[in-house]
Design a protein around this nucleic acid. Sequence first.
DNA 1: TTCACCTGTCAAGATTTTCTGACAGGTAAC
DNA 2: GTTACCTGTCAGAAAATCTTGACAGGTGAA
Lengths: 114, 114
Amino acid sequence: MPDRESLDGDQLLLVLNALANPHRLRIIAALADGTNYVSQLARDLQLSRPLLHMHLQRLEAAGLVEGHIEVSDDGKAMRYYAVTDFAFGVDAAAIAEAARTLTKSEPTGRTKGK
Amino acid sequence: MPDRESLDGDQLLLVLNALANPHRLRIIAALADGTNYVSQLARDLQLSRPLLHMHLQRLEAAGLVEGHIEVSDDGKAMRYYAVTDFAFGVDAAAIAEAARTLTKSEPTGRTKGK
DNA sequence: TTCACCTGTCAAGATTTTCTGACAGGTAAC
DNA sequence: GTTACCTGTCAGAAAATCTTGACAGGTGAA
């Protein structure tokens, strides 16, 4: 397990958003038990496959899980996902630091872009 | 500063949801610089007062900030907010642990309630 | 071929969240 | 009185998120 990471504002926000959902917390918990492929994971968690797909992409975009194709013995291509070694601490000081590099919805010169 | 807290699933989710917003990160950052009252904070952050009010409530519900009424010299009642001493770590193991006590959107016996 | 799996995508509806403008009340100062 | 602050709330629009069902493709096995 790596040392505690230091994320910039946008990264932190991306991660927090990825974690702020019960399904996604369960997905991480399930993958922490061991790597798994999409369809099986969907059955385990009782989620529709398209829904799980979307949640996995959100988690992967935040760098919390990683997927890779693996060809099974009988030639089927399966996408296996595993959790990454992420670890970070959250307190007021860390947030104050991160907030300085936030590019979204700034008071001036907003990057919003409609 | 207190030791790293250990939150149950629902608490953790509440906190993560509270933090998963750029405005709210900025609010915490601003309050980390020093306590402040609502109207002034709204001007500093360039947010409408009703909007800030909503965000503050979300943060307070998660236990990240605390507000109290303070009567100024000239008799006006102002609501001052300050950050609390929260601190917690996030990694796959912590999430796996917390996920076990999640009550929302469970596979069976959902608590959804419409 | 048909079946049972796997993968991925899309459109569109349902639900939440975010945000604003308008309104209510209060005090002190001019 | 009016003005200038402070507080709080509400309804409703706007935007983002979540979720499902249907469709596309692929493989190997019976």
